[in-house]
Design a protein around this nucleic acid. Structure first.
Lengths: 120, 120
DNA sequence: CAGAATCCTCGACGATACTG
DNA sequence: CAGTATCGTCGAGGATTCTG
């Protein structure tokens, strides 16, 4: 099984990797999923709080995404029926599995910004 | 500066992180960027070769993305003017900076698929 | 082989206003 | 506060055909 000429993993592995990559992109695709997950993982719980923590997002998009993410068990939504309606969003275990991806993306974004500045 | 009640980093850091995250999403957003980068980093060089390595992509999208990624110095395009036109795409250093993100996303995708199977 | 040209669809996303 | 309801746009992406 030696294949010194080819550094690459075999075609089957490659095919599996592309699929895995595409699956992931499908799940966390779009502009808002990851920022929302990140915000909630950072401890933001209230709707307006999350909203304010993500530049550019609208209530409509936040509402939509939260709803679907709740269905997919990515987050947990709890209503406390006190006087002023209180709702809290919290991360689930599932939610935390995105941690490394988010970390790497934040790292990249910071490095990228440095690069841009250096170039000017 | 002790703040034992708050595990979170301070608001300024959080704001920077969201921005970084959004920057990254902007750069690698869409269905095709990362799969293409991945394919090229895996050693695929020819147009049809890359195309075949990415399930679902059309020549139109591949063409569009490659063109823009060349402009952004994410990849390098070389034409060898031999008898049958030969073109080779190669990764640049810049291209490799996405490595960790892609790796984490592949990991996640593979784990995710396992989960789905176990649940059935 | 390596694409360009065309035409088209549809859904992600935005803006704004309103509700309990 | 925590959303819902409407309306609208625009561009990512798809399907197909054609070219050197």
């Amino acid at each position: 099984m030696k294949d010194t000429e080819n550094i690459l993993s075999n075609p089957r592995d490659q095919a599996e990797e592309v699929r895995a990559l595409q699956d992931t992109i499908y799940v966390i695709g779009g502009k808002w999923r990851l920022p929302i997950i990140n915000s909630i993982c950072n401890g933001n719980k209230r709707f307006r709080e999350i909203e304010r923590s993500i530049p550019g997002i609208t209530t409509r998009m936040l509402s939509r995404e939260l709803k679907e993410m709740e269905l997919n068990k990515i987050i947990k939504r709890t209503v406390y029926p006190d006087s002023p309606v209180l709702v809290a969003y919290e991360s689930t275990e599932y939610c935390t599995t995105f941690g490394n991806i988010i970390l790497e993306m934040i790292k990249w974004g910071i490095e990228h910004r440095k690069m841009i500045i250096d170039k000017d």
